[in-house]
């Protein structure tokens, strides 16, 4: 085995993701993801059922409040399936971000004792939350069968939309983790912020309600393109919103790149301030 030589010295300035090192630690990433999945459902009665209940109950409430009482349009499909199609990616997004902020507590005592690429911390929920996402996506398919909705050919773009969704979550996750290690406010404000943010994404209402001149600004939230894309591809409500997806992708890339750089700058202090 070739001997590894490590030079430990202060590294000033900005640095980007060290992909080679992360590749070295891929087994750890795998076990962290797997720990998340396994530990989450250990000693819980409903187990994986939580992945169904959360979006399902939200859907029922939204259908009653926004669909029946407020009579918000749903682009010609039943409001239940309309809102569920939005809730599937949104629930993934909000759960993985919520976990990122919480991961600090669970990682604080590891960070201060062992070295590993800190980048794995915000990356772990991005993958582990895919299990819940898969389960609720499956439920969406069942709902579509129930309401006799046939997906469009654009269902083939779903993997791309999912990638955009993961990329967005990872980008924001890196920002939030780096900030939350130093500022505990992030943790307090997180669940509140995510709830507010939901109204800035087309979860309970269709994008068609947004005035045309604001459409691209609205698309700066990458989840707008993802959610509207999900609906267009699966429910065929409207043509694929390529403009929203395009703007969203650019903004997601900017968030992720800046998040990675900021995270790398701040990670050297994690052990000192955690």
């Amino acid at each position: 085995m070739p001997e590894s030589i490590a030079v430990i010295e202060p590294e000033p300035g900005w640095r980007f993701i060290n992909f080679r090192e992360i590749w070295e630690y891929k087994d750890l990433l795998y076990f962290l993801i797997w720990r998340d999945i396994k530990a989450l459902y250990a000693q819980s009665v409903l187990g994986i059922g939580w992945a169904i209940i959360q979006p399902l109950l939200s859907m029922i409430v939204f259908t009653i409040v926004f669909g029946r009482l407020a009579k918000i349009g749903s682009d010609g499909v039943p409001y239940a399936v309309f809102s569920f199609a939005g809730l599937v990616p949104w629930t993934y997004f909000s759960n993985s971000l919520g976990m990122t902020a919480g991961s600090l507590i669970s990682f604080a005592n590891i960070i201060t004792k062992v070295y590993f690429p800190r980048m794995l911390i915000p990356w772990t929920p991005i993958f582990s939350k895919l299990v819940d996402f898969g389960v609720s996506l499956f439920l969406l398919f069942i709902l579509m069968v129930w309401f006799k909705i046939i997906p469009t050919i654009f269902v083939l773009t779903l993997p791309l939309l999912i990638l955009l969704m993961m990329f967005t979550s990872a980008g924001l996750g890196m920002w939030l983790t780096a900030l939350a290690i130093q500022y505990r406010d992030i943790q307090h404000g997180m669940s509140f912020g995510i709830r507010l943010l939901m109204y800035a994404a087309p979860v309970v209402y269709p994008v068609s309600l947004v005035p045309d001149q604001y459409r691209l600004i609205y698309g700066l939230n990458p989840m707008a393109g993802v959610i509207e894309g999900f609906r267009a591809a699966l429910l065929g409500t409207r043509p694929m919103p390529w403009d929203l997806i395009g703007v969203g992708t650019i903004s997601a890339i900017i968030i992720a790149l800046s998040g990675a750089v900021y995270f790398r700058r701040m990670e050297r202090f994690f052990a000192d301030v955690a």
Binding site: A6, I8, P10, T112, Y115, R268, D272
Partner: peptide, 9 residues
């Protein structure tokens, strides 16, 4: 902690 790379010098 420095030798195990937990914190930077």
């Amino acid at each position: 902690k420095i030798l195990s790379r937990i914190t930077e010098p």
